[in-house]
Design a protein around this nucleic acid. Structure first.
Lengths: 127, 127
DNA sequence: CAGTATCCGTTCCGATACTG
DNA sequence: CAGTATCGGAACGGATACTG
């Protein structure tokens, strides 16, 4: 299996693209963050997020499991118990994401200001 | 203007969310990368990417300008010339994105392997 | 050259209701 | 408890054609 990257960032298998898609997903970072504190159950995650439907949570968790970023463990009990936890791979993702988060915290005020100013100008234009 | 973040990552104005949305955008990182080499004209960018329609490129560039990540300069010439270049803010985004890219290059093989393996298992299941 | 204008298919996500 | 099933709306991005 030959693999060569010419920097085709719109090749769906370009590493950067794959990671950007995962990390840019609406819930991924939030879930990974929550699991930082330790294993959590389905409803614990759901309540911790507080605005995600079970359907969406399920599909996000499935993707995360598929990518090997989190693990799903089922306990044969009644009532059923399922725990999700970070894998080493998932944990290792924290560092770069934190770098991005820190950039965000430092610079987003400026970015939002710019964006708002632009929106006002657009409004003025439209009138 | 009071601002307090309780970590509402699904608050559309949460810094992390804003940055993730911008960076997770399909073309943003690619465009910022291209502009690293210096100012570029509309069609230069378009050809460098080679798979983006003018409409989408326009809207992406507009967003980037609105956010203050790139600058748009119009030259009063015939034929018209417009140049796009990174702002300091745009340049400063490179570092955290590079961190993510490096994580991608180191770990995506594993992630893709996991994903493929999972897909095969799903196929087997479906049959 | 540097865009605009339209149309259209897909994908994502949320709401709601139901189940092993 | 931990999901699944269905439906629907909105947003995104692409194809194509046209313009100041």
């Amino acid at each position: 299996m030959r693999v060569r990257w010419e920097g085709d960032a719109f090749d769906p298998e370009c590493p950067t693209r794959v990671v950007l898609d995962r990390v840019g997903d609406k819930w991924t970072v939030l879930i990974v963050d929550i699991l930082e504190a330790g294993p959590k159950r389905f409803n614990e995650i759901r309540l911790a997020i507080g605005g995600i439907t079970p359907k969406v949570l399920t599909s996000t968790l499935r993707s995360l499991v598929a990518d090997g970023l989190i693990e799903r463990e089922v306990f044969a009990e009644v009532p059923p118990r399922v725990e999700y936890s970070l894998t080493d791979l998932g944990r290792s993702l924290q560092a770069p994401v934190t770098a991005l988060r820190r950039w965000a915290e430092r610079n987003v005020a400026e970015l939002i200001d710019n964006r708002d100013r632009q929106a006002e100008m657009d409004d003025a234009q439209a009138s």
